[in-house]
Simulated scan of single mutants.
Amino acid sequence: MSDTQPIAFTSIPVVNIADLWSDSLTDRKKVAFEMGQAASAVGFLYVTGHGIPADKIKALREASRQFFAQPLEQKMQYYIGASKSHKGFVPEGEEIYGSGKPDKKEAFDVGFQAPDDHPLVLKGTPLIGANEWPDLPQFRASILDYYESVFALGRKLFSGFALALNLPEDHFESMVTCPPSKLRLIHYPFNADAEDRPGIGAHTDYECFTMLLSDQPGLEVMNEKGDWVDAPPLVENGEEALVINIGDMLEVLTAGQFIATSHRVRKVSQERYSFPLFFACDYHTLIKPLPQFDSQEQSYKELSIGEHMYSQALQTYRYLREKVANGEAALPERATGVATFGHLKKHKN
Score class of each variant (00 low, 15 high):
residue 340 T to C: 04
residue 225 K to T: 10
residue 146 Y to S: 06
residue 302 E to Q: 14
residue 178 C to I: 04
residue 311 S to N: 05
residue 264 R to C: 07
residue 164 A to D: 05
residue 70 Q to P: 06
residue 252 V to L: 11
residue 93 G to S: 12
residue 267 K to H: 15
residue 346 K to T: 09
residue 136 L to H: 11
residue 294 D to Y: 03
residue 187 H to A: 06
residue 293 F to N: 02
residue 69 A to T: 02
residue 310 Y to E: 06
residue 203 H to R: 03
residue 64 S to P: 05
residue 23 D to Q: 14
residue 143 I to V: 15
residue 236 E to K: 14
residue 345 K to E: 15
residue 230 D to Q: 14
residue 164 A to R: 03
residue 254 T to H: 02
residue 216 Q to G: 00
residue 269 S to V: 15
residue 66 Q to F: 00
residue 11 S to M: 02
residue 102 P to E: 11
residue 60 L to D: 02
residue 115 P to H: 06
residue 300 Y to T: 09
residue 282 D to S: 05
residue 133 W to I: 06
residue 320 L to T: 05
residue 105 K to C: 04
residue 81 G to S: 13
residue 23 D to C: 11
residue 131 N to C: 11
residue 323 K to Y: 00
residue 226 G to D: 10
residue 173 E to A: 14
residue 75 K to D: 10
residue 150 V to H: 06
residue 295 S to M: 01
residue 334 R to A: 09
residue 146 Y to K: 14
residue 24 S to V: 12
residue 85 S to H: 14
residue 41 A to H: 13
residue 211 M to L: 15
residue 282 D to T: 07
residue 336 T to Y: 05
residue 29 K to E: 12
residue 139 F to L: 08
residue 233 P to E: 05
residue 178 C to V: 09
residue 163 L to E: 04
residue 166 N to M: 11
residue 332 P to W: 13
residue 144 L to F: 07
residue 318 R to F: 04
residue 225 K to L: 14
